[in-house]
Nucleic acid binder design. Sequence first.
DNA 1: GAAGATTGAGGCTTCAATCTTC
DNA 2: GAAGATTGAAGCCTCAATCTTC
Lengths: 153, 153
Amino acid sequence: MSKSDPSAETTLELQDRMMAFVRAFGLHQPDQTPCGQPISVSEAHALAELVRDQPLTQQELGLRLRLEKSTISRLVGLLEGRDWIERTPNPNDGRSVQLTLTKTGTRMAKQIATAREKTFSRLLESIPKAQRPNVLAALKTLTEALHEAQQPA
Amino acid sequence: MSKSDPSAETTLELQDRMMAFVRAFGLHQPDQTPCGQPISVSEAHALAELVRDQPLTQQELGLRLRLEKSTISRLVGLLEGRDWIERTPNPNDGRSVQLTLTKTGTRMAKQIATAREKTFSRLLESIPKAQRPNVLAALKTLTEALHEAQQPA
DNA sequence: GAAGATTGAGGCTTCAATCTTC
DNA sequence: GAAGATTGAAGCCTCAATCTTC
């Protein structure tokens, strides 16, 4: 919401830096698997959300992961097929289902979280210590700006 | 390369912020199309690279976009189908091809660049002016850290 | 009719195998 | 055999249409 026309140069730099960052992040490769088969980034993210909050409806999960409901439906189907997630019908509303982690799913979620923490810890170590607060603050600012700029009006 | 164990909390925050950012960025949606049909993010990115440097081999383009050579092959095929790009055989090396923009392709690339600039300008406006330098610097730092952390050894 | 979820069609990406040229 | 490019198979995602329940 801050007025002031940004210069063309600054805009171009932001564009370059963001594209470079997103490409470098490599969203498409599956996560390292702590044990057994590889796991998609979204699967890992879904498990992480469920560890924090349980139960969740598919729509709620979709909002958190910013994925379409159809994607969530298939994603949950896969995780259910591995017996990591359970779909329980909501007693108060026959339309929605409640997602909960199975015992195996909880164990896997924690293993994945540990492995992931190692990855991000390593990344954080590659950032000069003095700049870490700036980087975190910048990511927050950027994400908020993205949400704001994506508003239709 | 900076030593010092980051705290678990900081690691978690980085993890959250990065996931939130990447999801918010929405890599999967096609770009707004300045005229005619929608364009994938990678197509727009490819045109932007070619406007800067011409000609490029497919492998070079793949390195810049951080995409597999098979992806580039298909991507170029699509752009060639629209008569935006030309594949010219390299006279010095029969294996590689030289990618150049056609007249139409150049015009489109510029239109897309303009539209994209508008998008990023709007995003930049959503970032408080005082924080803009920090955000840009942070993105640079992060991308470098990503490349460093992805090194095998 | 609206909300939650599912299914079908198509696009972009990766990995693996192949083909051609060096 | 290595390098550049292509093709085949499969995974994840979006959009649109559909089904069930409110």
